[in-house]
């Protein structure tokens, strides 16, 4: 039932509540409370108008209630809660996207040994060698020599620090054979991400080379990895 007196009382209370987003809730809660009391009084035999007046009287001074409720619902805390709630949602969406993207790149990166057709492979060598430069671990996993004379070096690289940024140049230095011939031409790619799947390819690598030598010697960082190759390149 619509009541002007109840509404006026509620308006009087609400005008002291500064934080706008709780006004509707307070209005509903106080309104329900008054309605319950009106019903109680009417069950005791009072007519509606009298029951309403008594119920509102029982509630007390609208100004005092309003001020108390404003204190309870501090507008600063209310605004900060609202702002931080929105901010958290935005941050979670953006950070989640970044994390999912980097994890996706790590798991399903563009670098896959199966990209080289089986019929093009002359030989492959499973490798399990790790080296470390600063905080970055480079884990060599496979060599694939193809019919076009490319030596494909597959490796993963990741930051040892839990809070590491995960980006690097993923360089493995210079590539040589056992005779010291250096192979410059070629290409490579890396998935990046938390664990970066990488491929470095060197063209015109000799089929009968006995050893692959990788030497990183830059800015006072050094590592050397030697991987024996199948004799005469006839390994299947």
């Amino acid at each position: 039932m619509q009541s002007r007196e109840k509404d006026r009382f509620l308006d009087d209370v609400i005008k002291y509540v500064k934080y706008p987003f709780v006004r509707a809730d307070i209005r509903i809660e106080l309104g329900n409370h008054i309605s319950d009391r009106i019903e109680d009084y009417m069950e005791d035999g009072l007519v509606y108008d009298v029951a309403e007046k008594k119920s509102i009287y029982d509630m007390g001074d609208a100004k005092e209630i309003g001020r108390a409720l404003n204190k309870e619902h501090n507008p600063f805390v209310g605004w900060m809660l609202g702002i931080t709630n929105v901010f958290i949602v935005i941050l979670v969406i953006i950070t989640g996207y970044v994390l999912i993207a980097t994890t996706f790149m790590s798991l399903f990166g563009l670098v896959d040994v199966n990209d080289i057709p089986k019929e093009d492979i002359v030989y492959e060598v499973d490798v399990d060698k790790k080296v470390q430069i600063d905080d970055r671990v480079i884990h060599f996993t496979k060599l694939v020599y193809d019919k076009e004379g490319n030596m494909n070096i597959f490796y993963r690289s990741y930051d040892k620090r839990l809070w590491g940024t995960g980006w690097s140049n993923n360089s493995i230095g210079s590539i040589y054979d056992e005779l010291g011939n250096r192979y410059i031409n070629g290409g490579g790619r890396a998935s990046n991400g938390i664990i970066s799947n990488c491929l470095t390819s060197k063209r015109n690598f000799p089929r009968d080379a006995k050893e692959l030598v990788m030497i990183y010697d830059s800015c006072n960082r050094y590592f050397e990895v030697r991987i024996p190759l199948p004799e005469g390149g006839s390994y299947e």
Binding site: M80, L81, I88, L91, T95, V98, L99, W163, T165, G166
Partner: peptide
């Protein structure tokens, strides 16, 4: 509010790191 502030700081640090 305190919970929100802690969450904002932690998620922001994670975002900055990544």
């Amino acid at each position: 509010l305190l919970r929100n502030v802690v969450l904002v700081v932690l998620i922001s640090l994670l975002f900055m790191n990544r």
